[in-house]
């Protein structure tokens, strides 16, 4: 628990997060400065992964793999969302200039809780690389890159997500830990 910003562990904050999460069109909360200390990047352990027309990025083990599957973090998730998520997997994903993922890569997905921890430094909005969530008959949700922020979004079967194409003019890569939890 030492890693999580103490503010997010207070009962009043958790109660507020739960209310905000469950009142959003697409259930979503974004928590800036979520951890007291962000981990160091180890890009050399990432490998390129492409399925043309679906995604093109680099992928590896989540930098905080153990933490995302810890009882401490899952307990926090339960309190913040009111859900009972079951850990499925975690990855570190990097989007370099020209990389992308498309919405239809999620087409076969079931109900899930998606958690993204942003490790992208010095980003500009015009470089793209933001996360996009869509749900039928609801306005899409755009989530810009923001170093140190944790995003939690509940997606049902039929809801889609992707990371927008990163401009060739980008001087850096977008980095994120991406964790999926199954929902009953």
């Amino acid at each position: 628990m030492d890693n999580i910003n103490f503010y997010y562990l207070e009962d009043a904050t958790l109660s507020n997060l739960n209310r905000i999460f469950n009142s959003a069109d697409i259930p979503f909360i974004r928590l800036s400065k979520f951890l007291n200390e962000a981990p160091n990047m180890i890009e050399s352990e990432l490998v390129s992964e492409e399925k043309i027309g679906y995604y093109n990025h680099k992928i590896g083990d989540a930098l905080l793999a153990k933490f995302w599957d810890s009882s401490e973090f899952k307990d926090f998730l339960c309190k913040a969302t009111g859900l009972k998520p079951t850990f499925r997997n975690s990855n570190h994903v990097s989007y370099s200039p020209g990389d992308y993922s498309l919405l239809h890569m999620d087409e076969s997905e079931s109900s899930r809780l998606l958690v993204v921890y942003d490790l992208t430094k010095e980003w500009r909005h015009e470089w793209g690389g933001y996360d996009l969530y869509t749900s039928p008959d609801k306005d899409p949700l755009v989530c810009n890159r923001d170093f140190g922020s944790l995003m939690i979004v509940k997606l049902n079967s039929g809801d889609l997500s992707c990371t927008r194409y990163v401009s060739l003019k980008s001087q850096f890569s977008a980095h994120l830990d991406r964790i999926i939890y199954d929902l009953e």
Partner: peptide, 9 residues
């Protein structure tokens, strides 16, 4: 400027 069309068939 900045426009694109990603891979498709």
């Amino acid at each position: 400027l900045g426009d694109f069309l990603l891979p498709h068939d």
